[in-house]
Every structure is written in C-alpha cells, then in structure tokens.
Write a protein that binds this DNA or RNA. Structure first.
Lengths: 131, 131
DNA sequence: AAGACACTTGACAGTTTCATCAACTGTCGT
DNA sequence: ACGACAGTTGATGAAACTGTCAAGTGTCTT
C-alpha cells in the first residue's frame, strides 16, 4: 500500500491529472542504501579543508607531518579530518617506521575529486549563467 | 613569508630531514576559492534526500508536486531541499502555469552525480577491502 | 629502559544543518 | 474578485558536525 503509492499517488492530485501524464512511468527510486553511501562520500568531500587534503593525496601518498607542513593547520586538526576520511573509506593508511602514510583508497575516488574540482574551477560555471 | 612557508616548512622538522626529500617540490596548494566552491557542490550533494532528488532530476525535468509524489515526504520539505540546491546552482527552475519545473543546472552536474552513484553502488567497494 | 618524535583519541564547546509548521506569494478557473 | 491549487519563505528547536586541547599509543634511537 505504501510502496505502490508511487505510481498512483498523482491520481488524486489536481496537478498531474492533465498536465504530465508520462509521470506515471515506473521509474523506481534509487536504492536507499546506495544513496546513503554515496551521500556519505559526497559529504566527506564537502568541506574545503578535507578537499584540500584529498587533492594533495590525489597527487601522491603523504605522511601526516608532511600534510601538516603543506596546509597551515596544526597536526591534531589534520589528524581528525583524516580520521573522518578514513572512516568513510576515502583514504587508506600504511605505517612505515614512525610515519603513517595516507593515500586515496582507490582511483575511483581520485576521479571523483578531479571531476568535482574541474567543475568547481569554472569560475561561474560557463554553462549556468549567474541567475 | 607566510606563503613561501610551504616549500620550507619541513626543514626544521625532524620528520622530513632524511625521509622524504622530494616533499620539497613546489606543488602549490589548490586555489582556496576553487576548493570552497567545489566543496560547496559536494556538500549540497552530500545528503541522501537531496541526492534522491538530484537523481530523479537527472532523468528528466519535474515539478515539485511530482517530486513530492515520488519521494515520500511533504512538499515544504522537498521545497526546502530544492531551495538549497538552487542556492548552490545545482538545479535551475522554469515556471509553467501553476507549476515550477526543476532540472539539473548542467550536464557536468549530471555526470558528477552519475559518477558518484556508480562509486557508491559498489557494495563494499571492490577496490578497498573492509579494513 | 628512557626520551623524543609521530600520531591518535576522547571530550567539551561553538557552530551549522535540517525538518517542521505556519504564514505568505503567485497562478488559474469561474 | 474569490477560492483553490502550487509552491516559497521565515522562524524555531533538535541533532549533527568541527575545532581544540590534554592525554594516550606506537616506534625509533641511544
């Protein structure tokens, strides 16, 4: 009753009676789980400081001290961000002696970042005029 | 002084003295503005409800009522989410009679979403084993 | 075994985000 | 011009997120 509502919900609405009939086509919702997981990835990337971090790691593996040196922030702050990125499995770690090296978890992530930055770079988005 | 710190910051740290010399290569930080803008886009996509919305709009243009019918949520809630997405210029609107039709702002956004969902679909990410 | 370096973690405070509801605007039919 | 439908907006409170700092763990050197 709840699930079948999608196809018929519009029937008792004034809105779609005459105006957009093709709206009743199946078009199932995306799997909730996939959406949640994807959203979690995007959310993790949706912060300027973390994105900087990811962008650096996209170039090559780095240890926390080096990351701290490049970004102007204290080490615990960087570490906390990395912790979050690791929790979402965007980065993975490798210990070598005293250092812990971080890198992007896979190159699918790398392409996501590259893709996003490319879009963000278009000063005011050539495709979408400023309102 | 502050900006040139990047190349030399590691010099007075024990860490990189002997261990990763190549760390001193130029590698400038990403433009802060680009990072901020990109992060804002990601953040906007970083919510399951909004992502659902975007995924629907990726298929075709829809009015608010139709979106409300497909997702099981009340209209003001949907509208608020759309407002945010519009503020970040991920979607654009077109009025036709009583209806306001939403669509993705450009197909760069569409590919970002598609890309992300593809990554999120990989059940537990075949490339990155569960820790 | 002790000290130093490289991190990580836990906890608290300040901020941000999000859903919800009531009130408001805009458009159409009569 | 009135009522109904379609949608937006502002305010409010609860929940989630982030930075910061003190204290902890792990590894190397001597």
């Amino acid at each position: 009753m709840e699930t079948s509502r999608n196809e018929e919900a519009s029937d008792d609405r004034d809105c779609s009676d005459l105006e957009h009939l093709e709206a009743k086509s199946p078009m199932p919702l995306l799997d909730q789980e996939i959406c949640k997981r994807t959203a979690a990835i995007f959310r993790a990337m949706g912060d300027a400081s973390r994105l900087q971090l990811l962008a650096l790691l996209a170039k090559r593996e780095m240890c926390v001290t080096e990351l701290t040196g490049r970004l102007s922030d204290n080490l615990p702050a960087i570490s906390q961000r990395l912790k979050l990125l690791r929790a979402e499995r965007l980065v993975s770690t490798r210990r070598q002696g005293k250092h812990i090296y971080y890198s992007l978890a896979d190159n699918h992530i790398a392409s996501l970042i590259e893709n996003g930055l490319a879009h963000g770079s278009e000063t005011d988005c050539k495709v979408c005029p400023p309102t």
